[in-house]
């Protein structure tokens, strides 16, 4: 399977919105509200989206996932290294699933 029209459409759409956002940030820089409700809302979006991605995955997992998430957080807070934190999470979940038989 090379690709499909649906996949090409999805990728083209992803490209279009990404390019539009990146260009408009620069072009509208002087017009974007620097203060007020909209500015505060925009500032809080990335964190809220990431929290929404993480929370269900950790909660619906089992003990292994919760402990691995804690280890990931600990490594990131101490080492401030994204890759080290990710690697820790993956290795911990691998070992814990084996140990807990899950």
């Amino acid at each position: 399977m090379l690709t499909s029209p649906e996949a090409l459409l999805a990728i083209a759409g992803m490209l279009a919105v990404t390019v539009a956002i990146k260009a408009s940030g620069l072009l509208l820089a002087n017009r974007l509200p620097q203060t007020g409700f909209i500015a505060a809302w925009l500032r809080h979006i990335p964190g809220a989206v990431l929290a929404s991605l993480v929370a269900p995955a950790v909660v619906t997992g089992g003990t292994a996932e919760i402990l691995a998430a804690a280890a990931t957080a600990l490594v990131f807070v101490v080492a401030r290294n994204l890759f080290a934190a990710m690697a820790t999470g993956v290795i911990m979940v691998f070992l814990l699933r084996m140990a807990l038989g899950g």
């Binding site: 809220a48 996932e65 990931t72 994204l82 990710m86 999470g89």
Partner: peptide
């Protein structure tokens, strides 16, 4: 679990202070 771990680390990297706690908890 690489997804979850990566997103979690990215999230923690965004921590700027106590004002982030409420939106993150509500989102979660």
């Amino acid at each position: 679990f690489a997804f979850t771990a990566t997103f979690l680390a990215l999230l923690l990297g965004m921590w700027k202070g106590k004002a982030d706690l409420l939106p993150w908890l509500v989102a979660a």
